[in-house]
Structures are given as C-alpha cells and as structure tokens.
Design a protein around this nucleic acid. Structure first.
Lengths: 140, 140
DNA sequence: CTCACACTGTTTGTATACGAACAAGATCGA
DNA sequence: TCGATCTTGTTCGTATACAAACAGTGTGAG
C-alpha cells in the first residue's frame, strides 16, 4: 500500500485547481462582458485610473510582458477604447490614454465586472470570500 | 468622495489575482520541470493513473477541450511519453497509453511536482495551505 | 432497418502568455 | 564626447485555451 502522502493527487495540486477555477471565471466573464476579455478590461481599468502610461509601463502595472501588452493594446485601439501618441520627451515611448469611449465603456462595465467577481466567488460565504482573496493575494 | 465599495479595485478582483498567482506558479513549474508544461504533466499523470483512455475522454478528465488536448497529446507523443493506437471497438477513437518512458518520467517527476505545489504555497502556513486548497476546490 | 442525432477527432481563427532576439533611442560613467 | 549599457517597442516561435465548423463513425428510437 503506497503512502497516501506520496501519491500524486492531481485534483489537489494548486496549479490544476487554479487552472480550472480560472476557466470557470473566464466563462463567467465572457458571458457577462462579451465585448472585452478580462485581460483587456484590466488594461483599460488601469489606464482609466492612472490616466496615462507608456505601453510597457502599463504592461508592468497589469502583469503583462512586453509582447503580451502589445497585442492587448492593439485590440483596445482597434476597438477605439485607447488612443496612442508618441511621447515628446522620449522617442521610444508611446503614450497611451483612454478615449472618451474607453472611459464610458469602463464606467459602464465596472459594475458588471464587480458582479462577475461576485459570481465567481458565489460558492463561498462572505467571510470565506475575504479569506480566499487574502490568501490568494499572498500567492502573487 | 466616491463610495469605496463602488470603486473598482483591480488588485482585489479574483480574476486578476488568479492570473498573477498562476503566473508565479507557471514560473516555478518551468524552473522545476523544464521538460514538460503543467498541462502536459497533468495529462500524463491522469493517463499513468487511469492506464488507458481515448483522446477526448482524457481531455474531459483534465479539463481540456478537444482542440486543446489534441495539441497536448501531439507534443507528448513527439516526446515519446504517450503511444496511440486505433480503438478496435470504435473506429473513431484513438486509444492513448503512456509508454514505459512516459511512466518513468511521471515517476521521476511526480515528487518534483509535489515540490512545486509546496513552493507555490510557501507563503502560507500549513493550515492556510489546506484552507486555500479547500476554498479553491469549491470555485471549480 | 433507417435515419436523425450524438460523438470522435481535426482544422481554423482568435486571444492570452512568455522566451529570445532585434533595432532604435536614452543614459551615464570615464 | 564616446561607448557600454539599459530601455522601449517589435517580431518570431511555441504553448495553452476556446468557439465554430467539418467529416466520419456509432447508436438508438421508431
């Protein structure tokens, strides 16, 4: 009889559980906000709340590497939510700013995003939700 | 002064935190087990523990849709860890089985995978780790 | 027995995600 | 001022992930 502590239990591994919990969250998000992905919404939210940022700086502020943030911003620009202008003080940089449509979209969607977070955490009691977020925050 | 409960706080949204915690986990996994991705390892683990499965069934058992599991299995076959034979009882199906190399790799890597789970949860106390996994499990 | 339906694996298109390499621009020490 | 070094944005390659469409196969109700 093998030691149960040594048996590999896929269903109790953090990585596997996080992947599945995230799948559920992504489905809820896509259902609640079909026009933007969670990643795009995160970038838009940060930009609306910080006002202005270079592309790579926004990437760092939202945990996306340079290659990833590029695609995300390309799509937000194509949707007309983000405007880009060259930085007069640094010719390498692109200054990003939300357009009025981008700000309006964020204001309209933020309550929905709150609802999606609530729906994701719905299986937990209010106290458990706070405990879970606190623990999760420490794993970043 | 805006109601702080209505303000959108990106850093307290489950989706954003799960994405970041998962990034940290993926980095730990890639460092500890460079030869396989977490997804590939999950598929191999399930196959080693179930013995045999069709491609789509294995996908369902590991929460991957048909398109995703195909690529994962293609790569595991290319590495020589999984063998595929046509199912004699159903001409649509492909029967998958771990190769001896696949079993050996799983036996060798399972302890490392355990260590990666431990490293991911390292910021938490033992009691917090169990609490976190229990809560996370309920969000799938 | 048939035929509608379900299921299998495949392909295409889109969207993260990251490593690696690159050119152009900025910066700072010697 | 010059040059090593860093930063910025870009591109390429690889790997999940999922929706949608597809052809081939199996199955069960009538």
């Amino acid at each position: 009889m093998p030691d149960p502590d040594q048996t590999y239990l896929l269903d109790r591994q953090v990585g596997y559980l996080m992947r599945r919990a995230n799948q559920r969250h992504l489905a809820l998000f896509a259902q609640g906000i079909p026009e933007l992905t969670p990643t795009q919404f995160a970038a838009l939210a940060r930009l609306c709340q910080s006002g202005q940022a270079s592309q790579n700086a926004l990437g760092r502020a939202t945990s996306m590497d340079a290659a990833t943030i590029k695609g995300v911003i390309d799509r937000l620009r194509r949707k007309g939510y983000v405007a880009a202008t060259p930085d007069p003080g640094d010719n390498r940089r692109i200054l990003l700013e939300p357009t009025p449509e981008g700000r309006a979209a964020f204001d309209r969607l933020a309550p929905l995003a709150h609802g999606i977070t609530a729906a994701t955490l719905a299986p937990l009691s209010p106290a458990e939700r706070k405990a879970f977020l606190d623990l999760l925050e420490r794993l970043c």
